[in-house]
Amino acid sequence: MASTSPDLLFGLRNNFYLGAYQAAINNSNIPNLSTDDTVERDSIVYRSYIALGSYQLVIDEINSSAPTALQAVKLLALYLSGGKDSALSSLREWLSDAAIGNNPFLRLVAGIIYTHELDYNEALKHTNTGGTMELLALNVQIYIKMHRSDYAEKQLKIMQQIDEDHTLTQLANAWLNLAVGGSKIQEAYLIFQDFADKYQMTAMILNGKAVCCMHMGRFDEAETLLLEALNKDAKDAETLANLVVCSLHVGKSASRYLSQLKLSHPEHLLVKRVASAEDNFDRAVQGFA
């Protein structure tokens, strides 16, 4: 029976989901993979490179004869490296192509790109039929961004029915707990703590724990966790953004973290918010000048 064969990509997927991108790349040489598994393996490795900011490597290595899933990853690299317009027009063209438009991986990349564009309704057009755990997890994220935790919860329930112990199910549960807040924050903290006990510590897990601590008013503990995350990845956008918020709460200057965030992630929401606040302030000052 096929169902009892070992899942050769389990460790690789887990590394990717939990933000251990370099480990995913380093441990990707897995023997005896089927053709489908090889494509999935390659897509995870290339997405790990994207997560590390190596967009050009991905663009250079994936050629036009690669399978649809890898073409989609290349499109994501192109989009994130600044080629937004051409990536979006290719995406629209591929999604309308009957032969590949329903490819779950192309739909996932469409969901990721339209979420980046803050066009959540367009994202959901391509993700809401689900079909993979990653698509369901992305739906949870999109609904949380839309402040629809009721819809996010429905998606989470589907994930729990498929595989309650799946890393993405656990992550989605933690995200939803954070969005709902209150007594659920402690539950989210325990999920991240469980990951920390089981797997290698990553910036993503540390940020998860730190955000829970901030919600619970434990800012000193959050700061310690975030500085540890910064040691692992000095350019991680979420770590820097969370450090800005945390520093303000513990009464320390946040300007250095904000400068780093502006330099490495000029498109980050926090950078845009601060810029618009600064513009408003400058306009207000000019009104009095």
Results as ranks from 00 to 15, higher is better:
V73E: 02
S65A: 14
I50N: 01
M133C: 07
E134D: 10
D150Q: 11
T35A: 15
M133G: 04
S54D: 11
N103I: 12
T167P: 01
V45W: 00
L95F: 11
V45E: 00
W94R: 15
Y120H: 07
T167M: 07
I162S: 07
S43F: 00
S48Q: 03
G101T: 12
G83Y: 00
V109P: 03
S89I: 13
D150F: 10
P104V: 14
L91H: 01
T132L: 11
S34R: 13
H147N: 13
S90E: 11
G53K: 08
T68L: 11
D85H: 06
I144Q: 01
T132W: 05
E61L: 13
W94H: 12
L136M: 09
L52W: 03
L106N: 04
T115G: 08
A99G: 06
L88I: 03
L168S: 01
Q141G: 12
R47V: 05
A110H: 03
M133Y: 04
H116F: 14
S43V: 04
E93C: 09
Q160R: 15
S90I: 06
T169C: 10
L95N: 09
D97Q: 12
S149A: 12
I144T: 02
K154C: 10
T115R: 11
D163V: 09
A110G: 13
T167A: 09
A69D: 06
E134P: 01
D165A: 12
R41F: 05
Q161L: 13
L70D: 07
L76V: 04
A110E: 03
L171C: 06
Q141P: 00
L80R: 12
M159W: 02
K84T: 11
Q141W: 03
A152G: 07
A69C: 08
E117Q: 15
S43P: 01
A51F: 06
E122Q: 11
T127N: 05
N29A: 15
